[in-house]
């Protein structure tokens, strides 16, 4: 099971069932995961599809779409940040 975390406005769009999800065998990279999400949840896929969306794997920001995803990873999708 992978853990998917959706922050901010992504959380309001994402299906809560995605919090704990068994990924299909073919999903092995971040790019693969985004493609799979876009197919399963088009509205979410569209929201995530922006150069300003950041992704953290196990709480570390990752910019490489070919980054591998393994069982038990925590993958977080972050909309543009706004502190202060």
């Amino acid at each position: 099971m992978a853990r998917l975390v959706f922050l901010g406005r992504f959380r309001e769009i994402a299906n809560p069932a995605l919090a704990q999800v068994t990924l299909p065998g073919g999903v092995r990279t971040l790019a693969g995961l985004k493609d799979w999400l876009a197919e399963a949840e088009p509205a979410l896929g569209k929201a995530l599809d922006s150069a300003r969306t950041q992704i953290a794997v196990n709480q570390v920001l990752v910019r490489d779409p070919s980054h591998p995803i393994v069982h038990d990873d925590e993958i977080a999708f972050l909309p543009p940040m706004s502190g202060g």
Partner: peptide, 11 residues
């Protein structure tokens, strides 16, 4: 830095 880089989301 906080305005654009702190992982916080405001509504």
């Amino acid at each position: 830095y906080l305005k654009t880089d702190a992982p916080l989301w405001k509504k």
